[in-house]
Structures are given as C-alpha cells and as structure tokens.
C-alpha cells in the first residue's frame, strides 16, 4: 500500500474542499482499501466522509425513496420502508457480499465500486481501465466471468454491483454535490460504458460527492424481486442476475422494469423485454417470449458463451417468480 495522508471531514464543505483539491473520498472502504493494498489504487490523500449527514432513508411523494449515500448496505436492506416498497432492493443487497461487508459498505460506495476483473486487480497485467493504453488482458485471456453486453475492444470487465442492477431497473437518480452545487444524474447516465476510455467509470465531475440515490414513485401495486445466479450459493458475484418490477392492474401488465447483472460492463437495462410485457396478460408463455430478448446484442467471449442462454433463463425465471402465472 502506498503511503497516504488522512483527514476526516467534519462537514460537507470541508469534504468538498478536500475533494476539489484531489482528496479521495472513503466511506465503507471495502473496495478502496482492498485495491490500495494491491496498489491498484494509490490515493495520496484519503478524505473520510463517514461523519457527514447522509444516513437517512426518506419516503418521497407517493412511494418513492431517497436513500442517503452513507446508509450502510445492511441498514438499507433491513429498512422497513425499503423492504415494503422495493423488495428488489433489499433482496439485491442481501444477496451481495457477506454480512460483515454489508455492515461496512455504503450505498454510495456500492455504486462506485470497481470491477472484480482479475486482470484489473493484477498490476502486472495489461488493463486499459487501470493503465490506459496498456491493452486488455481479459479480451483473449480467461474471461468466463466477463461481460457480453456493452463491451468494447478496450474493456470487457463486468460491473459487480447487485443493487445497482435494481437501481437501473427502477430508473433511479443519483444526487451529487460538487463545487458547482447540486446535480441529479439519471442512473442510466451515471455509470459509463467503457468505449475507448474504460478508466472513466462514472459521470462525476472533479470533487463531486454522491449524497443520495433516489427511486421514483412507481405505480402501485408493484411486485418486485431479484434473482442472482452464481457459482456457489452464497457470498459470490453474479454470473447472471435479474431485477424485475411489475405493475399489474386489471389482469394486464401496465409497467415492467427489468435489468440484468453479471453480464454488462454496466448494469444492463432490458427495454426490449419490458416492451414485450407491457399491455399483455401474465402467462408462462409471455415470460418465455419476453426473456428471449434478454441477450439481444450480446457478444460472448472465449469462455463465457454460456451467458446469453443463462441470462435468458434467469430473466424468464424471475419474471415468473415476480409475475406469477395465470
């Protein structure tokens, strides 16, 4: 680990000042400290933001939610309002990491977490994300866990977060505060696809700090849930996953929010699947037909040719779990 100076921000202003001067924000630290030890991350200054007043979960409007950036994963998952209004968020959180890590990691940090690509974490390997211009060892290396959607010739790393998949499905907004004041960024625009600059991962400007993630109020009744498929039953990243939320009224699907994880360079929204569902009546056949679109545009690599089919089945199963059958 490279040496760094440490400062704890007493308030937002102090934090933003330090951030503007190049300080690196640290909340739960579960990704950052790990990557610092591997020397993948080498911040000169750590700005501890854990004292900032960003710990609230607030119900907004008619059933929306604003989750403070410093709410821990465990706290968000257990929060009664989150569990009642958006089970898909609770489930995604509780299927992530371990109880210990969920007691440390925060919501803001979760969507800032970096890929688990082994080549990214290995400072001796080529990686455009870590070392722009050095190449991508995963492209022709061992890439079983890598992405099939949103990839480029420069990077095929998967975004590792589960709850970010739920946020993508629910069309969340990220609230940020920076030197120029407050901004709201649509979740779809917050995490960046690699393109030719995989080192740029979020649409944050210099010194900006995430203050909250807001889930809009969706039509009720809303049923939602998260399915995660992985190599072992617990404490593992997704091979594929599906976040599904459905609003069914008068026997007809009026709203469908669907996104996939473990397959994209960012959480992957599935508009073609959503379109296929809207206006239709729930049935096993409908779930299967809609899920056929889940892997549209997929580009499998040498070792993850199984992912498109696994993704379709994951989405189909979760549609059936959430939507039931008639």
């Amino acid at each position: 680990m490279h040496p760094f100076t440490y400062a704890k921000a007493a308030d937002m202003r102090e934090a933003l000042n330090a951030g503007w001067r190049g300080g690196r924000y640290v909340a739960g630290g579960t990704t950052l400290v790990d990557l610092m030890r591997e020397t993948v991350e080498r911040p000169d200054v750590l700005v501890d933001i854990s004292s900032l007043p960003l710990r609230e979960v607030v119900v907004t409007g008619r059933g929306g939610l604003r989750i403070g950036a410093l709410v821990r994963m465990a706290e968000a998952a257990a929060h009664p309002k989150v569990r009642v209004l958006y089970p898909v968020i609770s489930e995604a959180l509780e299927l992530s990491a371990s109880a210990q890590l969920r007691n440390m990691a925060t919501i803001g940090g979760n969507i800032m977490q970096r890929t688990r690509c082994t080549y990214f974490r290995d400072v001796t390997a080529a990686c455009n994300k870590r070392e722009p211009g050095s190449g991508c060892a995963a492209l022709h290396g061992y890439n079983r866990s890598h992405a099939i959607l949103g990839t480029s010739d420069h990077c095929v790393a998967t975004h590792p977060s589960d709850v970010a998949v739920a946020f993508a499905a629910l069309e969340a907004t990220v609230h940020v505060l920076g030197p120029d004041g407050e901004r709201r960024i649509a979740f779809a625009d917050f995490l960046l696809r690699p393109g030719s600059t995989p080192n740029r991962e979020q649409a944050l400007r210099k010194g900006e700090l995430i203050t909250a993630v807001e889930i809009p109020a969706h039509a009720r009744p809303l049923k939602s849930g998260y399915l995660k498929v992985r190599d072992r039953q617990s404490y593992e990243f997704a091979l594929t996953s599906a976040a599904v939320a459905l609003h069914v009224s008068g026997g007809v699907i009026r709203e469908a929010k669907v996104a996939a994880g473990g397959v994209g360079t960012v959480p992957w929204k599935l508009p073609a699947v959503e379109r296929h569902l809207i206006g239709e009546r729930p049935s096993d056949r409908l779930w299967a037909e809609a899920a056929e679109h889940a892997a549209d545009g997929a580009r499998p690599l040498t070792h993850n040719g199984f992912k498109p089919e696994l993704l379709k089945r994951t989405v189909e199963r979760q549609l059936r779990t959430v939507g039931g059958t008639k």
Binding site: D34, Q100, L101, M104
Partner: peptide
Amino acid sequence: RVNSCLTLAVR
C-alpha cells in the same frame, strides 16, 4: 461484525 483487515485503524 466487520472484516478488520479492510478497516483502517486510523478511522
């Protein structure tokens, strides 16, 4: 409960 290996003591 937390992982003490990922916890910076200075914090």
